[in-house]
Design a protein around this nucleic acid. Structure first.
Lengths: 235, 235
DNA sequence: GTCTATATATTGATAGAC
DNA sequence: GTCTATCAATATATAGAC
């Protein structure tokens, strides 16, 4: 007979310390109730808000608890360690953050693929600026928590996509250029609108710094990248 | 008779607290000796190192003192407050940081001007990565210490240069595009190599992530921007 | 000017009542 | 599960000897 198994157990949502579920060693970790999961989400949401601005060391549990609307000991009941909150946010981050690049498809045509990749990245900067800043903070510090993922998973993904880009170049569908730096420039230009948002808004001023700025950015970037990549006949 | 005035008094190098020189109210502030200035520079250098990585709140005087090779009370003798060190670094930052943009000259031709602007910015990312990261940290936090400078001085500068770019477009020397987002994209792509250095190196790997990466980046960016901006005959 | 010692505040984390 | 009280560690900053 098959041992009883909880349906849809979300092992990533257990109360953990140092990456391991709390409780007696050897004891079967219990999945969280709906309420517990919701509380954790409230905390993670608040922590994202704070970590994104002040980084790990610059953020305090007090701040996070205040934003989450609960007391500090109460927060620590759900996440016994500050580091644990950060670890959870960061480990979920890379996956979502790289989703747009994963979608770039070798079977498609280069311009539509690149164009929609840029659009998706720009939408992420618009809709998830805190995630973008959390990532930027981590990078500025030398990516101490995700360096292995960067060196392995991210590198593999970019190598693969660079290969696709090179393939398109070989077919003459795309101007020959450095595929790695091409990807860097898409990352940089799109994330800029989240990470340097204050500066963008201040420079554009009240008239052009409103919500429309993302549409303007999309139009500009499309022009920059597509014209810049159009293959030309040698003359 | 003219009151005695110290030659070359560097008022920005006095020992200050909350932006005002220390000492009895009304007393004439004394300029620093050479040794004092050198000690301050050692501290500022160390602080740049630390603040660039951890941000203001995430950095400690202990860390800075250790990097500077002196005791904490000794450091506090030269800068009575942690905030004062940061204030000095930040206020000097914007000036140096915008120097390359200031050099963009309306009397020049667009492509050489833009090309050398990109080169200068990329050289700054290569040679002054800590300054770049300090700036990025400040931006991520919403630029609390330099928001007025951003809204006034920086905005004015960018407005002026955007005007120059528009002029070139009117003359048909430059593809018509959004001059503000053009400037943003130059900032973003060049500073990326300082702020996201870990990621760039990890993705490029040992073979291509060495010092040559800046030359590769320069070549790529030149191609991206210049081809992308070449005016075309309507067809 | 530099050091040791220390005051004072903040912070991460725990104990234990309810 | 949540709270008050509190501990221990760390952090900014000062006092005062030399």
């Amino acid at each position: 007979m098959v041992p009883t198994k909880v349906k849809n157990a979300d092992t990533s949502a257990l109360i953990e310390r140092d990456g391991k579920p709390l409780g007696k060693a050897g004891a079967k970790p219990r999945p969280l109730t709906r309420i517990q999961r919701e509380k954790q989400n409230v905390i993670l949401e608040a922590a994202l808000e704070v970590f994104a601005v002040h980084g790990f060391r610059g953020s305090t549990i007090d701040q996070i608890a205040e934003v989450a609307g609960m007391s500090k000991p109460n927060l620590l009941y759900y996440f016994p360690r500050k580091e644990e909150i950060h670890r959870r946010l960061i480990s979920e981050l890379l996956v979502t953050w790289l989703a747009p690049l994963r979608e770039m498809d070798a079977k498609g045509d280069p311009f539509p693929e690149i164009r929609s990749y840029i659009r998706r990245k720009l939408e992420m900067a618009r809709d998830y600026p805190r995630e973008s800043r959390l990532f930027a903070n981590e990078m500025l510090q030398g990516a101490p928590h995700i360096i292995e993922m960067i060196e392995i998973d991210l590198k593999n993904l970019v190598d693969e996509k660079a290969g696709i880009l090179l393939g398109w170049m070989d077919e003459g569908k795309l101007a020959r250029t450095d595929p790695y730096h091409l990807i860097f420039s898409i990352w940089a230009t799109t994330q800029h609108y989240a990470d340097f948002d204050v500066q963008v808004r201040a420079v554009l001023g009240p008239s052009r710094g409103g919500e429309g700025r993302f549409e303007d950015a999309a139009r500009y970037l499309e022009q920059l990248f597509l014209y810049g990549l159009t293959p030309r006949a040698k003359s």
